[in-house]
Design a protein around this nucleic acid. Structure first.
Lengths: 211, 211
DNA sequence: GGCATTCTTGACCATATGGTCAAAGACGGG
DNA sequence: CCCGTCTTTGACCATATGGTCAAGAATGCC
């Protein structure tokens, strides 16, 4: 008897299950990231995945379940760049590398970024537990690393948590506010993220004051 | 004969019209900013304004019309801080003041910020004209000012448009991602924006490199 | 105080949407 | 190639939602 897909992705038992769950999660990411939870419809997601709505509901028991599944799948990807901040590395170089990784993420996975933006704008009820749990813990851990760097005089004194917020804000901005950035920059201008990389590296390290 | 409110706000002819249109726009701001266009419902907005749905539709002919009215009303407010960047002022002090004004905006008008974030996440079709028109023009004008400051050696050389993006991103982040910020900081910590002000002023001006 | 105009809303409509169900169709081990 | 299991979907249901309408309630000018 089928436990009708109440388990998330990797747990599909048969080949067809794994394939279709993956197709559905991709489709759901696309739709949820553009529309947000409430405005997205199961018909849209099913159509995007090339199947019928009842078939979607065969794999995921409800709209909320597939939404949670997409969010879960994305969370790890989302924390990875910060995890890579190496306490043993050179502080300035580590921050540079973190900014670079986050910008790559905005370029290669803008949908994931918008999915989170949508969720958090709505209040983030669905992922509140991840935020006050693993996310908060990781931020605190890396903030401690940065504080040690500062204490050793290898970084100017700044609040490390707000520093992390600033890196999130500036890098994710290029995914979340893409429409505005293209409108302001004009269509002709090349990839905004290339300019962003140069600019952010310099701003974060050197600041605006002339020397 | 009633032209049934097809005009936006200030144009209400009678006292009751002005009052009710204002009440509806406030309610609409609240609901649209939290839910986004599609997920918001007219019933919600009407209830929030303390009246019936047909009465809402007496003042605004459709959901899209009240949505546009809210967006329009907010746009000016939104551009004001950048308009205040004074070409005659001291460059570092002007940037500082701009960051301060934008942070105040995030603290005092977070709903407006989220309204825009929602709209732009969806692709910004409704305000595309404002973005490629007035917004783009203002950004280009102020970018020219910043470029002159740089040419005069009064600011370190940076791409001025990306600088404006970075200020938008970091300051609006505290309104748009409020839920995440509070989750990471914990409930106890005071007003996040106070810490943000100190941090951003320092980051933008001095950067991270120790000296 | 009476009347035209402006406001307000209960009842209603068409459509969209999350979700159910039963029956048909594809798969795969024996 | 047969049969039990897994997939798939058309038809359907209850509810929500944007919007209409006609009639009643205020309002304000004369």
């Amino acid at each position: 008897m089928g436990e009708t897909g109440s388990a998330a992705e990797g747990r599909g038992r048969t080949r067809i299950q794994r394939l279709n769950q993956a197709r559905l999660l991709d489709a759901a990411l696309k739709v949820f990231s553009q529309e947000g939870f409430r405005a997205a419809t199961l018909d849209q997601i099913a159509a995007e995945a090339g199947m019928s709505k009842p078939n979607l509901l065969y794999y995921f028991a409800s709209k909320e379940e597939i939404y949670r599944a997409v969010l879960d799948r994305t969370l790890d990807l989302w924390l990875e760049p910060l995890r890579g901040l190496d306490p043993q590395g050179d502080p300035v170089e580590e921050i540079r590398a973190y900014i670079r990784r986050k910008l790559e993420m905005s370029r290669d996975n803008p949908q994931e970024s918008r999915l989170y933006a949508n969720e958090i704008l709505r209040g983030g009820a669905v992922i509140m537990a991840e935020m006050t749990g693993p996310l908060r813990a990781l931020v605190m851990q890396k903030a401690a690393v940065i504080r040690r760097w500062i204490a050793a005089g290898r970084l100017a004194p700044h609040d490390p948590v707000h520093l992390i917020f600033a890196i999130w804000a500036t890098t994710q901005h290029y995914a979340d506010f893409d429409a505005q950035i293209r409108a302001v920059l004009g269509e002709d201008a090349g990839d905004p993220i290339e300019g962003a990389e140069r600019f952010l590296q310099q701003l974060f390290i050197e600041g605006l004051r002339p020397r």
